[in-house]
Design a protein around this nucleic acid. Structure first.
Length: 675
RNA sequence: UGGCCUAUGGUGUAACUGGCAACACGUCGGUUUUUGGUACCGAAGAGUCUAGGUUCGAGCCCUAGUGGGCCAACCA
């Protein structure tokens, strides 16, 4: 099929429509506008993906703009971190901009507005002004300073700028409409006095513009064609446009704001304020703690830019509130790492395995594929000897035949090595297993090509040679919260849902190949999961983070209780099916092609014999507009009556139901009813 | 006494101009496999919030209702 119509999301559609209605491609320009008051998280990843993605799609520039109008909360540290994160994701911005670069222009425009009677200085307290503002359901009222003269406003505003007043003494407000149903239009603040040093402008200013007055005008200055933001800014759009009206010359591009639903992930939180609390209260080690949903945390955890980009791509763009399941995130990182991560062996919960018929002191270098998914990835050597560690979980003295791992008397393969057979167990005084003794088949070495090496054994275990193993710290992460929606409970603090087991630090044994792994390197620990080398790793102490486990269908079936071994529930399904089949068939009945319709009706008649009278009656109050279902109802009624040799008139409500169908405008329905 | 947004399987997103509701994740089976991974095959799961209307035909258009979200920071 040549019509691979790639469906556009609604933002792409808007851009396409604009292009069709006069915008040129050269006019397209986007921006990502973070406030430098915290680290970027996975939710920002979506926003970044949308604006930068559009930039890539249309080959249009995208500015990275820091919305830095509040010196009380913003810091250079965050600016640097944000740049690093965006760059790491692989996006290229056109210009780095700062709203603070436009402070003078904004001030000049504000003065013009005062002269035009569109802005005034208010000198009340914030509490009083809030009261005058009314509520969403109640209009506001004008304050006493609303009609100050232009001269007085100009004088006051200039003195505000000159630093003559204390914080809170005066503000500049736009003069719009105190009764507007949109609260944001009730004379919004444009400037407040803040005697604080700004991370870029120092002490040049002591009045700072508010978000609404800054954001749209910054877009306009930069000639952003589409200013995309999250849904909570929808009510701001009216103000955005109003402010733009005040400065728009009519000669250049008029920017527009459009809104999309932000990303939410279950089992985590996305609020910067709450993330900051986790950092400040030491619940996590910092913004880049691998359990954090921040980009830097995910990076440290071992996520790849590709996985994150793919993730936000699959999540889509729309306008309804959504909660994405973390499993989708995990799917994306596994998919990427499966193709790229080098396979190695590591034992995290070791038990000693002795191969009694393997010569003492002997060692061999065996070959291991670096990545079976990538034929160009090559191989590496792994040392083998008489004493190994295997995973404690991989041995049971006796087990059902569903257990593919090592038991006494059964054979399994040691990955990349030999086939072994469990022989005996050595236990300590308390009965805990100290050693497992086994024998190996010398002919069965992997890759040797012998008959024995090709033997089919069900299980394959990973292992490390004890004398060659390298100790490493391994950090096992689990979700930070136990609750699907930690901040979705108004009466409870999200901290109550912290998972006490979100981090487990253990010592593991890894094959010597990993001895000189570098910080950030990603591996698959065979049969266990994906791991990367943590920042804390040093030449003499390796530290690994578990990025994500492998899918594990064995772990899933284990906890299953024995009881429901019986039959699933065929009974119930059988019963539901007569009615539900008819419903399904009936739904589209009215707009099927004739031939198919006749066949479908015959089909319904067949099923209708199995209905109960109650089920048939259920059709009688079908909504009038559901013509197909009503048709199916009529057909069922007739077939039912026939099958049970009943008169229509003996069924409550049936005659009325038929009568209504006969009187319906729809010919098909009439036809069916008149049979 | 309000205004704005929104409603499609468990989750997320599609369905172009109205024409037998699709894709991905997840779930459940099966095949392959020197990773209980991967890959491949298959299944279950949605009457598209409700009720009216327009139409031969509505997830899509219109009206009303209902549910959910957002809006009363000198935050962004």
């Amino acid at each position: 099929m040549s019509d691979t119509h790639k469906s556009l999301n609604f933002l792409e559609q808007i851009v396409e429509d604009d292009l069709a209605n006069g915008y040129t491609r050269e006019q397209l320009r986007f921006r990502f506008p973070p406030e430098p008051n915290g680290y970027l998280h996975i939710g920002h990843c979506k926003a970044i993906g949308i604006s930068f993605g559009l930039g890539e799609k249309y080959d249009a520039p995208v500015n990275l703009r820091f919305d830095d109008t509040n010196p009380a909360k913003e810091e250079q540290e965050y600016v640097d971190a944000i740049k690093e994160d965006v760059a790491w994701l692989g996006y290229k911005w056109d210009q780095v901009c700062f709203s603070s670069d436009y402070f003078q222009q904004l001030y000049d425009w504000a003065v013009e507005m005062i002269k035009d009677g569109k802005a005034y200085v208010d000198s009340q307290s914030s509490e009083v002004m809030a009261e005058q503002k009314g509520t969403p359901t109640q209009p506001g009222v004008a304050g006493p300073y609303r009609d100050r003269s232009v001269e007085e406003n100009l004088d006051l505003f200039e003195r505000m700028k000159a630093g003559e007043f204390k914080e809170g003494a005066h503000v500049l407000r736009a003069k719009i409409d105190m009764a507007d149903p949109n609260m944001l239009m009730r004379d919004p603040l444009m400037y407040r006095i803040l005697h604080k040093d700004h991370h870029r402008t120092g002490n040049t200013w002591c009045i700072y513009p508010m978000y609404d007055w800054t954001h749209g005008e910054s877009d306009y200055i930069e000639q952003i064609s589409h200013s995309l933001c999250s849904l909570e800014f929808k009510p701001h759009r009216k103000l955005y446009d109003w402010f733009l009206d005040q400065v728009y010359t009519g000669k250049d591009l008029r920017t527009k704001q459009r809104e999309f639903a932000r990303l939410n992930l279950n089992y985590t939180i996305m609020s910067k304020r709450k993330l900051l609390r986790l950092v400040e209260e030491g619940v996590v080690s910092g913004w880049d703690d691998p359990r954090m949903p921040t980009i830097s945390g995910l990076r440290r955890r071992g996520y790849t830019p590709m996985a994150l980009r793919k993730f936000v791509e699959t999540v889509g763009v729309a306008k309804r509130e959504n909660v994405i399941d973390v499993s989708l995130l995990e799917f994306n990182i596994r998919q990427d790492l499966n193709k790229t991560a080098t396979r190695v062996m590591a034992v995290l919960d070791p038990v000693k395995l002795v191969i009694t018929n393997y010569p003492e002191g002997k060692e061999e270098q065996l070959l291991a594929d670096n990545n079976p998914e990538d034929s160009n990835s090559g191989t590496h050597e792994v040392p083998f000897s008489r004493e190994l560690y295997i995973e404690r979980e991989d041995f049971k003295e006796e087990a059902s035949n569903k257990y593919f791992r090592l038991t006494l008397g059964k054979e399994v393969r040691l990955k990349n090595a030999y086939i072994i057979k469990g022989e005996s167990v050595v236990k300590d005084a308390s009965g805990a297993i100290k050693e497992i003794h086994c024998t190996y088949d010398p002919e069965s070495r992997s890759g040797s090509g012998t008959e024995a090496s090709k033997r089919n054994v069900k299980g394959t275990l990973h292992w490390v040679s004890i004398q060659h193993a390298v100790k490493a710290e391994v950090r096992l992460y689990d979700r930070l919260f136990n609750n699907e929606s930690p901040d979705g409970h108004p009466e409870k603090d999200f901290m109550e849902f912290l998972n006490p087991e979100s981090l487990k630090v253990i010592t593991g044994y890894v094959e010597p190949f990993l001895a000189n792994a570098k910080v950030g390197d990603r591996f698959q620990f065979q049969r266990l999961g994906y791991f990367n080398v943590d920042l804390d790793s040093t030449a003499d102490k390796l530290v690994f983070n578990r990025t994500v486990g492998l899918r594990d269908s064995w772990a899933k079936q284990k906890p299953k209780p024995q009881q429901n071994q019986g039959q699933p529930k065929p009974q119930q399904q059988q019963q539901a099916s007569a009615l539900s089949t008819i419903n399904k068939l009936g739904k589209k009945l009215a707009n099927l092609p004739e031939e198919k319709r006749i066949a479908t009706i015959a089909d319904i008649e067949k099923h209708a014999a199995n209905l109960s009278e109650e089920e048939v009656k259920g059709f009688f109050n079908t909504a009038a507009k559901k013509v197909g279902t009503r048709m199916a109802g009529i057909v069922s009624l007739y077939a039912f009556a026939k099958a049970h040799s009943k008169e229509i008139s003996s069924i409550d409500g049936a005659e009325e139901f038929v009568q209504k169908a006969l009187e319906d405008k729809n010919e098909l329905l009439q036809e069916v009813a008149s049979r």
